[in-house]
Write a protein that binds this DNA or RNA. Structure first.
Length: 420
RNA sequence: GGAGGGGUGGCCGAGCGGUUAAAGGCACCAGACUGUAAAUCUGGCCUCGUAUGAGUACACAGGUUCGAAUCCUGUCCCCUCCA
């Protein structure tokens, strides 16, 4: 592999962040100069379709973080404007339109995530958070068409995957959605003009959109722009990363408690440990190399480090430490750590006695009564680490140990019952 | 506009009058083995009931029949071919 002159691209390459780059040498030269003489600005756009982002966006966020570390300026572009349209890329049907209130609320949630990963401010390498509604909402239709629309041919737009997918399947693609790519291209140009932003990064599905933006920037504003995409991150068994059966792995504490976030990383399969350490932690590569080489049960050490590092970055030092302590207490000593999900029930109710099945349901350790009964029948239900033998069991105050009751469903799911 | 095919459980997909809560696969849950891996094996996987059982369910609404996912009628949606 050729060695790169810029720290940023060197790191990204070594850690396997890069899928495609429009002009690697050109960009490398530019970044290398910028690293000596002043920051280069680069941006990644994020949709505001939910109140949080999930692990799928973490690769992009990590790139922005590295960018900042290497002395450049990361720009987080929130799609306050474009989310009003909805990106058709990779979707075979239209999404329902979000209301402006939804979008505003989603932006609020997403913003807090970036505060964890980046340093914002006014300085040359401080991150900036920009909302594309700032310029998109103000567009005048005819002016826009004359200024921007002339640079796009329908012939070319029809060749884009996002469009082709719909047309091939005879799924409707509305004119509204058809415009998405133009607006994203316009974003890039606008950021180039306003913030001297030269590089757009994104997932591999954004390649087309990014290239469009570069071309528009060149034609309409004479800017020389660059694009870079990351590969789609999959797990060793070929699944899209970050989607578990219970749903997405969210980055916001409100959507997913730190303990669960930690557990997600801790449960990484062996084959993915090295890859994840490279992408989602900032440990030095030789350290990662050492950890990745661990075999047998020793690799668990690497998984713990992965979980600690990833959680620290996303949720902060304390949250990571608590999650780790709880995991240690629960799994290594068979106790009950304080970070486990806790449910409070009134003292009177417990004094009367509660059926074990209902208790499990209250603690969200089962989907239905039948589900909990099955669990008990198969020997997966435990109360204070004692196997529950019968679904008839009535739980009362006598079961309190240290003022709480520990329930377990299988080896990994635990909950604490406390008196309110 | 014309002709044909189809809509089944989280997904894929069999069934085409009774033995069908519905084969098989995937996903998921538990157990065993382990390392809170992976792979494998075992059991489970609509709801309620300890259970014999009951209630819902095969796009939707009606009908035929002792009995319907299976037959008929209407409605909605999808696909393929022709114009």
């Amino acid at each position: 592999m050729t060695s790169l002159k810029s720290d940023f691209l060197q790191i990204l390459t070594e850690r396997e962040f890069i899928h495609q780059v429009t002009d690697l040498e050109g960009l490398d030269a530019k970044m290398a100069t910028a690293e000596k003489e002043g920051a280069l600005s680069a941006y990644i756009g994020f949709d505001c379709t939910g109140t949080s982002l999930h692990v799928g966006s973490l690769v992009q966020i990590m790139m922005l973080r590295w960018l900042q570390k290497c002395g450049h300026k990361p720009i987080v572009l929130l799609g306050g404007g474009t989310t009003r349209i909805g990106d058709p890329s990779g979707k075979d049907e239209s999404r329902r339109l979000l209301t402006d209130d939804d979008i505003a609320q989603n932006m609020q949630g997403i913003r807090t995530i970036f505060d964890q990963f980046l340093t914002f401010g006014e300085g040359p390498t401080d991150a900036a958070l920009v909302n594309n509604a700032e310029w998109l909402d103000k567009l005048e239709y005819i002016d826009f068409l004359r200024e921007i629309g002339t640079h796009f041919t329908i012939n070319r737009m029809l060749t884009f995957d996002s469009v082709k997918l719909r047309l091939d399947r005879e799924q409707p693609l509305t004119f509204l959605e058809f415009n998405y790519m133009i607006l994203q291209a316009y974003d890039f140009m606008e950021l180039g003009k306003r913030y001297d932003c030269r590089l757009q990064m994104g997932g591999s599905d954004q390649w087309g959109n990014i290239v469009n933006g570069m071309e528009l920037g060149r034609r309409a504003a004479g800017l020389s722009l660059f694009g870079l995409t990351t590969p789609l991150i999959t797990t060793a068994d070929g699944k899209k990363m970050g989607k578990t059966a219970d749903g997405a792995v969210w980055l916001n504490e409100d959507s997913l408690p730190a303990y669960n976030y930690w557990q997600f990383w801790r449960n990484t399969q062996d084959a993915d440990v090295g890859k994840f350490l490279r992408l989602f932690t900032e440990l030095p590569l030789d350290e990662i190399c050492r950890l990745d080489a661990l075999e047998g049960s020793e690799i668990n050490e690497a998984k713990i480090i992965l979980a600690n590092e990833a959680t620290k970055m996303c949720r902060g030092e304390t949250a990571a430490a608590d999650a780790y302590a709880t995991a240690k207490e629960t799994f290594e000593r068979g106790g009950a750590g304080s970070d486990l999900p806790t449910v409070e029930i009134p003292e009177a109710q417990l004094a009367e006695g509660l059926n074990i099945v209902d208790l499990f349901l209250d603690a969200s350790l089962g989907a239905s009564k039948g589900d909990v009964r099955r669990l008990i029948k198969q020997g997966g239900a435990k109360i204070n680490d004692q196997k529950v033998e019968s679904a008839e069991l009535v739980v009362g105050k006598k079961d309190l140990a240290d003022g709480q009751i520990k329930l377990s469903a299988g080896k990994k799911r635990h909950a604490i019952i406390k008196i309110s």
